[in-house]
Simulated scan of single mutants.
Amino acid sequence: MQLVVARIGRAHGIKGEVTVEVRTDEPELRLAPGAVLATEPAAAGPLTIETGRVHSGRLLLRFAGVGDRTAAEALRNTLLIAEVDPEELPEDEDEYYDHQLMDLDVVTEDGTAVGRITEISHLPSQDLFIVERPDGSEVMIPFVESIVTEIDLEEQRAVIAPPPGLIDDRAEIASAREAEREPGDGAEREPGDGQGPAESGPREAGDAS
């Protein structure tokens, strides 16, 4: 099975190094020196990683045969693709590869159907499930332990405990209720009410790895 593990960014320096947007939880395995990767577009590869290092928090790679800035810049936006055994599982039991999570049915803890996972978006702060609902609309579910409470691969489902407003209009109802309170009444912040995305817990989706 072929899975995307990184996207090449801009050239770094003059000796052929490039920045990469890592899309795997195990870059030390998938993006190690000596790794041979297919590419999209295919005409750009295959590419063999010659060296790798971290600079200012970003991974820099140099590929065999790419020796100057011009050649490196020509690879910009190329996707790097690794061959992965579909039976291979992550070492951490709370981590999953993207292909394990795709097409899972999403349900709430009371069994209400929400939709189906059609895409996994990897953001710097956390991963998101892009879930297609029965009416064709989409909803984004943060892949954090407080919201995604269970992944059942045997039943092919993800169980969620959505905070108000994540998948319905409960946030608007709650706001209306708060507006009806007497002046001076205290308001307790509800989960997800006016807060940013929760920090990602041990559950993380990996692109390939």
Results as ranks from 00 to 15, higher is better:
Met1Thr: 07
Gly9Glu: 05
Gly9Asn: 07
Ala11Pro: 06
Ala11Gln: 10
Gly13Pro: 00
Ile14Asp: 15
Gly16Ala: 01
Val18Tyr: 15
Val22Ile: 13
Thr24Ala: 04
Glu26Ser: 07
Glu26Gly: 04
Glu28Ile: 15
Arg30Ser: 15
Ala32Ser: 14
Thr39Ala: 01
Glu40Phe: 12
Glu40Tyr: 11
Pro41Gly: 07
Ala42Asp: 12
Thr48Gly: 02
Gly52Phe: 07
Gly52Leu: 06
Arg53Asp: 03
Arg53Cys: 02
Val54Lys: 08
Arg58Lys: 07
Arg62Ser: 00
Phe63Thr: 05
Ala64Asp: 11
Val66Ile: 08
Val66Asn: 03
Asp68Ser: 06
Arg69Gly: 09
Thr70Gly: 15
Asn77Cys: 13
Leu80Gln: 06
Glu83Pro: 11
Glu83Thr: 11
Val84Met: 02
Glu88Tyr: 12
Glu93His: 12
Asp94Gly: 13
Gln100Glu: 09
Gln100Phe: 08
Asp105Tyr: 07
Val106Asp: 00
Thr108Arg: 02
Glu109Ala: 12
Val114Pro: 03
Gly115Met: 05
Gly115Ile: 07
Arg116Asn: 04
Ser121Trp: 13
Ser121Thr: 14
His122Arg: 11
Leu123Tyr: 14
Pro124His: 05
Pro124Ser: 04
Asp127Trp: 10
Leu128Phe: 06
Phe129Met: 12
Glu132Thr: 09
Asp135Tyr: 08
Gly136Phe: 04
Ile141Trp: 04
Pro142Ala: 02
Pro142Asn: 00
Phe143Ile: 06
Val144His: 01
Ser146Pro: 03
Ile147Ala: 08
Thr149Leu: 00
Glu150Ala: 07
Ile151Thr: 05
Arg157Trp: 09
Arg157Phe: 10
Ala158Val: 01
Pro164Glu: 03
Ile167Phe: 02
Ile173Asp: 14
Ser175His: 13
Glu178Trp: 15
Glu180Gly: 08
Arg181Gly: 10
Gly184Pro: 07
Ala187His: 15
Glu190Ser: 13
Pro191Val: 08
Gly194Leu: 05
Pro197Trp: 01
Ser200Ala: 15
Glu204Asn: 12
Ser209Met: 14
